[in-house]
C-alpha cells in the first residue's frame, strides 16, 4: 500500500514538473539567457561578425559623453508629461461615463476602441491626421482659426507634442476603464454623508473621490512610467530616422538603432542596462512614496 502511494506521488511529481516545464524553460531560454548575455555584452564590443572583444567599462564611459544618448533621455522624460495629462482626461471621461444613461456602454466602447487597435495602425492613422498640408488637424485649424497649423512631424518643437497627442488618444480609454471600475467601487454612503454635512460637489470630489481612487492613480502612474520608458513603435513609424534633429528618438529607439542599424551590440546592451536600472530605481522610489499617499483599505 505504502509502495503504491510513493509510485503515485512520483508520477504526480513528474506530472507537475511537466506542467511547470514550459513556462520555466521559456523563461530560461527567452528571458534569463538573453538577460545574462546582454549583461556580458555591455562590457564588450561586438558587431555580430567579428568575435566580441572585451572593452571593460568603455561603453559606459562613451555613453556619459554621447550627445545622442542625452537627447534620447530628454525626449523620453519629456514624454512622461503624457501621464498626468492622460490621467486628467481619463478621470473626466470616466466620471462622464459613470452615469446611468441609456446607451452609455456604446460610448464606453467607442473610447476603448483605440486601446485594442495595434499601435502600428494607430501610428499610420496619425501620420495622416498630422500631415502638414493635407492632415485633418491642420485643415481643422485652418477652417476655425484661419491660420496654418504647425508642421507636426517636421518641426523639432512639435514632434514630441504630436507623440503626446497620439498617446493620449490611444491610451486614455484603458485608463478610463480603470477609473470607471474605481468609481463604481466607491460606496455611495460616503457621498450621502458628505451631502448631509453640506459638502459641495467640489469638496466631495476633492476629499472623497480623489483619495479613494489613489490605488488606481498609483497603478496608472507606475505602468505609465514603465510604458513611456519603453516607447518605441510610434517613433519607429512616425519618425523612422529619429525625426528632425533627433527630436523623436526615445531611449529604446536609440537602443534599436545602435543594435540593428549600426550593429554596435555591446553599446546597445550597455544602454539597455542603464535603462533597466533607471526604470528599477524610479519604480522603487514610487513604491516607497506610495505609502504616504495611496489609500489601502
Amino acid at each position: 500500500m505504502k509502495k503504491k502511494t510513493t509510485g503515485f506521488r512520483r508520477k504526480e511529481m513528474l506530472w507537475s514538473l511537466a506542467f511547470v516545464a514550459p513556462p520555466v524553460l521559456g523563461f530560461l531560454i527567452f528571458g534569463l539567457a538573453p538577460l545574462l548575455t546582454s549583461f556580458g555584452l555591455s562590457f564588450m564590443s561586438w558587431d555580430m561578425m567579428t568575435p566580441a572583444k572585451f572593452v571593460g567599462a568603455d561603453n559606459f564611459v562613451k555613453m556619459a559623453e554621447d550627445e545622442k544618448f542625452y537627447k534620447a533621455l530628454y525626449n523620453t522624460f519629456y514624454l512622461l508629461l503624457g501621464i498626468p495629462l492622460g490621467m486628467i482626461v481619463a478621470l473626466v471621461l470616466a466620471m462622464m461615463m459613470n452615469r446611468p444613461l441609456k446607451g452609455i456602454s456604446i460610448f464606453r466602447t467607442i473610447y476603448y476602441i483605440p486601446v485594442v487597435s495595434p499601435i502600428i495602425a494607430i501610428s499610420l492613422l496619425w501620420q495622416w491626421l498630422l500631415n502638414y498640408d493635407y492632415g485633418i488637424i491642420n485643415e481643422f485649424i485652418w477652417r476655425i482659426f484661419g491660420v496654418q497649423g504647425p508642421n507636426w512631424l517636421g518641426d523639432p518643437n512639435w514632434v514630441k507634442p504630436s507623440f503626446l497627442m497620439l498617446g493620449l488618444w490611444g491610451g486614455v480609454g484603458g485608463t478610463m476603464v480603470l477609473y470607471l471600475a474605481g468609481l463604481q467601487g466607491i460606496s455611495s454612503t460616503y457621498y450621502e454623508a458628505a451631502e448631509v454635512d453640506g459638502a459641495s460637489r467640489w469638496h466631495q470630489f476633492r476629499h472623497i473621490t480623489l483619495p479613494l481612487l489613489s490605488p488606481i492613480h498609483f497603478f496608472v502612474v507606475v505602468m505609465g512610467i514603465i510604458g513611456t520608458f519603453q516607447a518605441f513603435s510610434q517613433m519607429y513609424i512616425l519618425t523612422p530616422d529619429g525625426g528632425p534633429e533627433y527630436s523623436g528618438g526615445t531611449i529604446v529607439f536609440y537602443i534599436f538603432q545602435e543594435a540593428f542599424k549600426y550593429f554596435n551590440m555591446g553599446y546597445a546592451s550597455a544602454v539597455a542596462w542603464v535603462l533597466g536600472i533607471l526604470i528599477f530605481i524610479v519604480t522603487l522610489i514610487q513604491f516607497r512614496f506610495s505609502k504616504r499617499w495611496v489609500y489601502q483599505d
Binding site: 506530472w15 506542467f19 516545464a21 514550459p22 524553460l25 521559456g26 527567452f30 534599436f256
Partner: peptide
Amino acid sequence: AAMLVLSLGVTGCASNNNNGGG
C-alpha cells in the same frame, strides 16, 4: 491537459520570439 499545456507553451514561446524586431 498536459498535451494542451505543452503545445500552448511551445506556441507561446514561438510567438514571443516573433515579437521583437530583431
